[in-house]
Computed example of a mutant assay.
Amino acid sequence: MSPLLANAILLSLFIFSVAMILTLLRLFRGPSAQDRVLALDYLYIIAMLMMLTLAIRYSSDTYFEAALLIALFGFVGSFALAKFLLRGEVIE
């Protein structure tokens, strides 16, 4: 791996972790439930991007599979939360 790529990966991981901290602040201090759901959606997207960055850094397929699982569970979770906010129940 070239030094430029290694530095770019470290910089992107640092920026992703700062974004994750700011998103956690929005998640805990959000004025409404919709803000908290959006922060949770953004949180799983950042986690997925961090996994993909680590997959590039370590050249491992396991991180790609973990990113895929995070994306699938995040979508299902955000769908369930949106349905709960609209109707007050998840299972009909």
Rank of each mutant, 00 (worst) to 15 (best):
Leu25Ser: 14
Arg26Ser: 05
Ala39Asp: 12
Leu27Pro: 01
Ser12Tyr: 09
Leu25Val: 08
Ala71Met: 10
Met1Val: 11
Met48His: 04
Leu68Asn: 13
Phe79Trp: 08
Val90His: 02
Phe75Thr: 08
Thr62Val: 08
Ile46Glu: 06
Phe64Val: 15
Val18Pro: 05
Thr53Glu: 15
Ala19Lys: 06
Ile56Gln: 06
Ser2Leu: 03
Leu52Phe: 02
Ser32Pro: 11
Glu65Arg: 02
Val76Leu: 08
Leu5Ser: 15
Met20Leu: 02
Arg87Tyr: 09
Leu49Val: 02
Phe28Pro: 04
Met48Gly: 14
Ala67Gly: 13
Leu13Met: 03
Phe84Pro: 04
Asn7His: 09
Ser12Glu: 13
Val37His: 00
Ala39Gln: 05
Ala82Val: 13
Leu86Cys: 15
Pro3Cys: 04
Tyr42Val: 14
Ala19Gly: 01
Leu43Lys: 01
Leu25Trp: 01
Ala19Asp: 09
Ala33Glu: 15
Ser59Met: 06
Ala80Ser: 07
Glu89Tyr: 05
Pro31Val: 01
Ser60Asn: 12
Ala82Arg: 02
Phe14Val: 10
Phe79Met: 14
Ala71Leu: 07
Phe14Gln: 04
Ala80Ile: 01
Leu4Ser: 09
Ala66Thr: 15
Ser32Asn: 14
Met50Thr: 12
Tyr44Ala: 01
Leu40Val: 10
Leu40Phe: 01
Thr23Cys: 00
Phe14Cys: 11
Ile9Val: 09
Ala66Tyr: 08
Asp61His: 12
Ser60Glu: 15
Leu54His: 03
Ser59Lys: 09
Ala33Asp: 13
Ala6Met: 14
Asn7Tyr: 07
Leu69Asn: 13
Arg36Ile: 00
Asn7Thr: 14
Phe84Arg: 04
Glu89Asp: 13
Leu4Trp: 13
Ala19Asn: 08
Ala71Gln: 01
Arg29Gly: 01
Leu11His: 09
Leu54Cys: 11
Ala19Ile: 05
Ile56Lys: 04
Ile70Trp: 00
Ser59Asp: 15
Ile9Asn: 13
Val18Leu: 05
Leu43Asp: 06
Ile56His: 01
Thr53Leu: 03
Ala47Ile: 06
Val18Glu: 03
Ile15Thr: 05
Ile9His: 00
Ser2Arg: 03
Leu40Ile: 12
Tyr44Asp: 12
Phe73Trp: 00
